[in-house]
Every structure is written in structure tokens, then in C-alpha cells.
């Protein structure tokens, strides 16, 4: 019957520990053992009986939902990313404007890097829009 215990442990591995979990595991193990005894009384070899009981147990997914295993929720960071990209690009552009007018006031070149930088908030804007 050790195998059975091992299998039940394996089944419940992904579920966070709780009193409820322990109780269900005990219940499941107890019932599975009874099933195995029953099958053995019907003339099955122990190994066959254990395998049959395990196979017929089915998938644990339903039980996971009931035990409140939350499907990981992906946090929506798109708004934060958009804000960061806007502030970041403003600061970088300001730096270029300053360099432009401080070191070479006769040639206006800051627009070129400005266009390149604007891709950043632009892409973040569309990612944010898609997420909403």
C-alpha cells in the first residue's frame, strides 16, 4: 500500500499545504485503499488492483479548483510601462535638446534622435491599448 500513498502524494504535489488538503488526502487515500482491497477480493493481483485504482481516479484538475489553487493571474503592467516610457523619453529628449543648443546652437539636429526615441512610447502606447 506504500505505492498508493506515494501516488496520492504525487497527485497533490502542486497544491499548497493546508488543513483542507491534508484532510482530503487522507480521505482519498483511505477510499483508494478500500477500492484496492475490494479489487483484490475480486481476484486481482495487488499490483493490478493498485494500477486500476490509480487510473480510475482521474485527473486532479477539478479538485485543484475546489481547493482554491489560483491560476496565476498576470498583472497588467502595460499602463505602468507606458508611463515609464513617456517620462523616460521626455528626459532623454530634453537631454538632446540641451546638448544641441548648448554645444552646437547653429545646427538643429536634436529632431533626429527625438524621432528614434519616440518609437519607445509609441510601441508602449499600442501595447497598452491592446491590453485594454
Amino acid at each position: 500500500m506504500k505505492e498508493l500513498k506515494g501516488h496520492v502524494d504525487e497527485l497533490f504535489r502542486g497544491i499548497p499545504e493546508s488543513e483542507q488538503k491534508t484532510a482530503i488526502m487522507e480521505e482519498v487515500l483511505e477510499n483508494l485503499e478500500e477500492k484496492v482491497w475490494d479489487l483484490m477480493e475480486q481476484g486481482k493481483a495487488e499490483e493490478d488492483a493498485i494500477n486500476k485504482a490509480i487510473v480510475e481516479f482521474g485527473s486532479i484538475e477539478d479538485l485543484k479548483n475546489e481547493l482554491g489553487v489560483k491560476q496565476p493571474v498576470k498583472k497588467n503592467n502595460t499602463k505602468l510601462n507606458l508611463g515609464f516610457s513617456i517620462w523616460g523619453s521626455i528626459i532623454i529628449i530634453a537631454l538632446f535638446v540641451f546638448m544641441n543648443f548648448y554645444y552646437s546652437p547653429n545646427v538643429i539636429w536634436f529632431v533626429y534622435p527625438t524621432f528614434a526615441i519616440l518609437w519607445w512610447p509609441l510601441s508602449m502606447y499600442f501595447i497598452w491599448k491592446r491590453a485594454n
Partner: peptide, 17 residues
């Protein structure tokens, strides 16, 4: 019809709740 035990325990949990 044979119920899968896993389903059965899920139902118990739900009904008990």
C-alpha cells in the same frame, strides 16, 4: 457510468462549502 474519484471529491468539497 463510472464517476472518476477526483471528480467525486471535487463535488464533496463544493457541496460542503
Amino acid at each position: 457510468y463510472q464517476i472518476k474519484e477526483a471528480t467525486l471529491y471535487a463535488v464533496f468539497q463544493r457541496l460542503e462549502k
